[in-house]
Amino acid sequence: MTELVAAQLVVNSRMLYFGWTPADPEAVSALVPEGLTPAPNRQVFMNQYVVDDATQTSGFGAYSLTYLGPDLSGMDAPDGVTPGRWWTHYFNSSPAVRAYAAARGVPASVGTTTIELRGHRLVATTESDGVPVIRTTARVGRTGDAVNRGQLRYLTHLDGELLSGNYPFVAEPVDPFEVESLEFLEPDHPVYALRPAEPLDVTWGFYSPRASFAYPGGESVLASVD
Rank of each mutant, 00 (worst) to 15 (best):
E3G: 01
E3Q: 04
V5L: 12
A6K: 14
A6M: 12
R14Q: 14
F18Y: 08
G19K: 03
A23Q: 13
E26K: 14
A30C: 07
G35S: 05
P40F: 11
R42K: 11
Q43N: 07
Q43P: 02
V44F: 02
V44M: 04
Y49T: 03
T55L: 05
G59I: 11
F60R: 09
T66I: 15
Y67M: 00
G69R: 02
D71G: 08
G74A: 03
D76P: 04
D79H: 15
V81A: 06
W87F: 14
W87M: 03
S94C: 02
A96K: 15
Y100N: 05
A103S: 12
A103R: 13
G105L: 01
S109I: 03
V110F: 13
G111T: 13
G111M: 12
T114W: 10
T114G: 07
R118L: 02
H120I: 09
L122E: 03
T125P: 12
T125L: 13
T126R: 04
E127C: 14
S128H: 15
D129L: 10
V133N: 09
I134W: 03
R135C: 08
T136G: 09
R139S: 01
A146T: 08
N148H: 06
N148D: 01
L152I: 02
L155T: 03
H157V: 05
D159N: 13
G160K: 07
G160R: 11
G160H: 05
A171R: 15
P173T: 05
V174I: 05
V174E: 01
D175Y: 15
S181A: 15
F184N: 12
D188P: 00
A193F: 14
E198Y: 10
P199V: 06
V202R: 02
T203F: 03
G205F: 02
F206N: 02
F213E: 00
A214Q: 06
A214S: 04
Y215T: 01
E219I: 09
E219D: 09
V225S: 07
V225M: 13
D226K: 07
